[in-house]
C-alpha cells in the first residue's frame, strides 16, 4: 500500500538543482546578498532556508543573514484544532529585520494561511523594507490572495493529495513527494 500512497515528485538531485536556481533568483532580486535576510518557517522552511543560505554563500562568497519563524501562536485555527503544545522559537539575525529584504521561505505553498501568519509575525518584529515569498513547491488551493515570488516547482495535484517536502534533518532524505491524505506522517 505504501507504494501506491507515495509518489516521488522531485528526488534529491532535482531539489538541489531547484534550490541552486532559487538562490540565484533571490540574490538577483536583491542585487547581491547585502541587506538580505532569509527567514524560514519552522520546521521544514527553516531547514530549506539553511540550504539556500549555503547556496548563496557558495555563489557570493559569504552567507546572508538567516532566521527562523515559528508561527504557531499566529495561526487562525486554535478553536478548530486545539492548542499545539510544540511551540518553537522564533529567531532573528542579530541586526534584526528593519529596513532589510526579508525572504520568507516555506516548503509548500497551499492555502496561504501559513504565509499570512508569517507576515503578521514579521510585522510584530519590525519593519522590513521588502518581503519576498520563496517556496520549494507550489500547488493549487489558495484560500487567501497570496502568491509566491520564487518557486522551486509548480505541481498539479488533486485536492485529496498532499505535497510533502522531506529534509535530511527531520526525514532522513531530501525529496518532494505526493502523499494520499489518509496516510498519517
Amino acid at each position: 500500500m505504501a507504494f501506491t500512497n507515495r509518489l516521488p515528485l522531485m528526488d534529491e538531485a532535482a531539489v538541489r538543482r531547484a534550490l541552486a536556481r532559487m538562490a540565484r533568483e533571490i540574490v538577483e532580486r536583491n542585487a547581491g546578498r547585502e541587506g538580505l535576510v532569509l527567514m524560514g518557517i519552522r520546521r521544514r522552511g527553516d531547514v530549506l532556508g539553511g540550504l539556500l543560505a549555503e547556496e548563496i554563500a557558495g555563489a557570493e562568497g559569504s552567507p546572508p543573514s538567516v532566521g527562523a519563524l515559528d508561527i504557531t501562536l499566529y495561526r487562525d485555527d486554535l478553536a478548530e484544532v486545539g492548542p499545539r503544545p510544540v511551540i518553537g522559537e522564533t529567531t532573528l539575525p542579530p541586526a534584526g529585520i528593519d529596513g532589510r529584504t526579508v525572504v520568507i521561505i516555506d516548503d509548500v505553498l497551499f492555502t496561504g494561511r501559513t504565509v499570512r501568519a508569517a507576515l503578521n509575525e514579521l510585522m510584530d518584529w519590525g519593519r522590513p523594507a521588502r518581503v519576498l515569498l520563496c517556496v520549494l513547491a507550489e500547488r493549487d488551493g489558495r484560500e487567501l490572495p497570496i502568491q509566491a515570488d520564487i518557486v522551486g516547482r509548480r505541481v498539479d495535484v488533486p485536492p485529496d493529495r498532499r505535497v510533502e517536502v522531506l529534509v535530511p534533518e527531520l526525514d532522513g532524505r531530501l525529496a518532494v513527494e505526493l502523499v494520499a491524505t489518509e496516510e498519517v506522517v
Binding site: 499566529y74 495561526r75 518584529w125 519590525g126
Partner: peptide, 13 residues
C-alpha cells in the same frame, strides 16, 4: 521569549 520581545504580544487568544 515573548516577554523579551519589543512587541510583547502574540494574537493567539
Amino acid at each position: 521569549e515573548i516577554s523579551e520581545r519589543r512587541i510583547k504580544k502574540v494574537p493567539v487568544l
